[in-house]
Nucleic acid binder design. Sequence first.
RNA 1: GUGGGCGUGAUGGAAUGGUAGACAUACGGGACUUAAAAUCCCGGGGCUGUAUAGCCGUGUGGGUUCAAGUCCCACCGCCCGCACCA
Length: 872
Amino acid sequence: MTRSIERYNPRVEEPRWQKAWEDAKSFEVSNDDPRERYYVLEMFPYPSGRIHMGHVRNYAMGDVLARYKRAMGLNVLHPMGWDAFGLPAENAAKQTGSHPKTWTYANIATMRAQLKSMGLSFDWSREFATCDVEYYQRQQKLFLDFLKVGLVTRKKSKVNWDPVDETVLANEQVIDGRGWRSGAVVEQRELTQWFLKISDYSEDLLEAIDKLDDWPDKVRTMQRNWIGRSDGLRLLFELLPSAKTAATSIEVFTTRPDTIFGAGFIALSPDHPLSAHLGKADPALREFIAEFHRQGTATETLEKAEKLGHFTGLRVKHPVRPGETLPVYVANFVLMDYGTGAIFGCAAHDQRDLDFARKYDLAVIPVVLPPEASPEDFEVFDDAYVGPGTIYHSDFLDGLPIDAAKKEIARYFAALEVDGKPQGVVETNYRLRDWGISRQRYWGCPIPVIHCPTHGVVPVPDADLPVKLPEDVTFDRPGNPLDYHPTWKHVPCPICGEASRRETDTMDTFVDSSWYFARFTTPHADAPTVPAVANSWLPVDQYIGGVEHAILHLLYSRFFARAMHKTGHLGMDEPFNGLFTQGMVVHETYRDSKGDWLLPEEVTVEGMGESRRALHARTGEPIEIGAIEKMSKSKKNVVDPDEIVRTYGADTARWFMLSDSPPERDVQWTEAGIEGASRFQQRIWKLLQDMLEISAVATSGPADPEAASVRKLVHRAVHNVGEEIEGLRFNRAVAQIYELTNTLTKFAAKLEAAPSAEGVAALREGVESLVQLIAPMMPHLSETCWAALGKTGMVADAGWPKADPGLLVDSTVTIAVQVNGKLRGELVVPKGMAREEVEKQALSLEAIARMLDGKAPRKVIIVLDRIVNVVT
RNA sequence: GUGGGCGUGAUGGAAUGGUAGACAUACGGGACUUAAAAUCCCGGGGCUGUAUAGCCGUGUGGGUUCAAGUCCCACCGCCCGCACCA
């Protein structure tokens, strides 16, 4: 083309279409729409201040799916909101003096504008923030309903205390002994806390994982491990009488009761009540326990902390070796909060027990004989044997495989009694603990109860909801502003009117995000949900977000669905039918000679491969190119989406985020990548202009044999892109579209030289399909092209193009011809050609005949329409 | 330690057990231009100086198969989760 074509200008087009969609309420959905429903949800963001590239990727994926499903004729719910309570707002208040509410809503306004500039097809009429009174008031209602049915408890417990954030953390929020947000080393404190009884559902949450077919295996495995079921035996060991204690037995939990004949010692946790009791009269033991506590929280540094113990002087009767006794130790490797806080040690078949036994010179008695090993030769040295085998050295268990021995010994101990109780009880233990939700913070949902001196804990009556956060608070001292507010907590008891104290704890913000997906179905209802409506949308068909929520958020949400089911707010147990965890956006890091991090725009990168190097954009100073890491402010390897949208447009950013990398894997942000996406946008625009020009000229002409093959390609692309989007393989959908565009571009060039009416018709059809295929990824460009094609209405309201099944099948196929598995030639034959004919043609290929050299093949393998393999 | 994932051109990555490297990026060559940018065309795993010819090639070593990137076994490396859970 010699004429100049005006470039597509996203800066003008994008805001224009965003306004058009908004005016037409294109993405608002009705709960009364009778069509089939589809619920796409991306994990809602915390309003930290600005959108980052991770958000762009996440929402671009969800938007592709939402727009595609809408085009397929479904009634699609695609909402957006804000996970708006949380500590950063309070930290900002401390640092800048702005009120958390002001800060949060200002951030929301900024980020909403950013999201809107991305052209995402959200139903903004359903937007809410979890810090809206209208939302947390319903959350308080849920809490009260949970309380009524016994899903809420209040108990004194040892809690993880974050000394920097001055609040309690759930076990899930402690990572390597440090607070998940502050990174501070977590301390243990005793506090009375509110708990949600997630452990009521341990087994159910575990079992139901099997049915979550549309979840990544990785996440399912992580949840299974987190719930951590183990089956074993609770076992009583009878203590020999001692002046040291009145206790007559010690209770242990074991998953290996089959190794009981190999028992060599008993070990108590330093936190075990008996340990504390014995410590009173034993200064050395007291010191041992104190030392343990000093190390306690710091153990994360000691990868392989040494097994240490202290002999208590107590002994128990060996339960199956009459006349023998076992020593009782307090040992640093025994956890109080799992099982009973006491174990029996079987050194030969547990590495920890073996390490301990070697250190204190305790008995090592092998009782499991590995297959193939002989009783005379088998010995345990430095490695405990934990594999399969046959029980030996074990009297009546001898000769049994492990599982049978477990059953046998359980039966044996069930029939015996110690302290008037069965000596052994089969028991299942879970690692999953109840969810502590109390937070000593201001910016969260107040727990709606009142503490009356007479009536104790009194729930706030439904009629008195919401319990609103006071706005006149200060952040000039540590601790909970609600607690030192002058008036807020002083209220009369709802029952007797006596002066009482309002609960000043607020809820963990993970509570807020555990049911927002349900609230989106009726965001303005008086009750938390309208069950009939919620049930018509839920479970969410496709949930998309980061894998970092694989345990916490997703497990809590699954629990909440069950709890809401039980309290009549929902009709199902599982909130998310399909889950997709997308990869992160990563970028190179740069640092100067002083070790300071630099922003990508402060750096110029030149050369490639070995010679690739970075220079400071201003000073020319050499810059070290560091690791490719998740974009983070601290390492400055960030790219601001606003900047990208301003420079390249939202469509370009979306397209790039969907290209190249499979969505579940990390994608590396590169300048070249975004440039390439931008060029492609212009290529489509130019192709459209070329097509319009050619079709204006070529209204007649000869028949065009190429037209048919172009049409085939177009219909195949329509079919394939749909399939790839359904499967969330956006990178492959993108590749298909590139391929189609390349074909159409070449065809257009050919037509320009040799116009034909038939060819032009095929080209027009191809371009029109292309415009629709790019709509989910580049919706603004698509609308502009659609209008340029003279179509009425918007692509947003148009259906998905339909592939003609007749054009998806080829009449001829290319068959690969191999000799001994190596490609030697090709054969183009009619589809479905008979084997004999295929064989004949294959063998007569020149290259094949030469390889055979006149000899007959030993065998010829033929896969219909696919491949021929000649075996010599 | 334990559970899971992944190793393919310069790079991101394609490939129902059936023609390895689709598509993109970077690069090289050419066209257009006074020039550059932009755009368009061509090339491209390695080796055999030429390639319409051949050999090698998907982390390493074995195996199954007419046929292996794909399945099986062992090993090496990287990433992620959990971690003294009895």
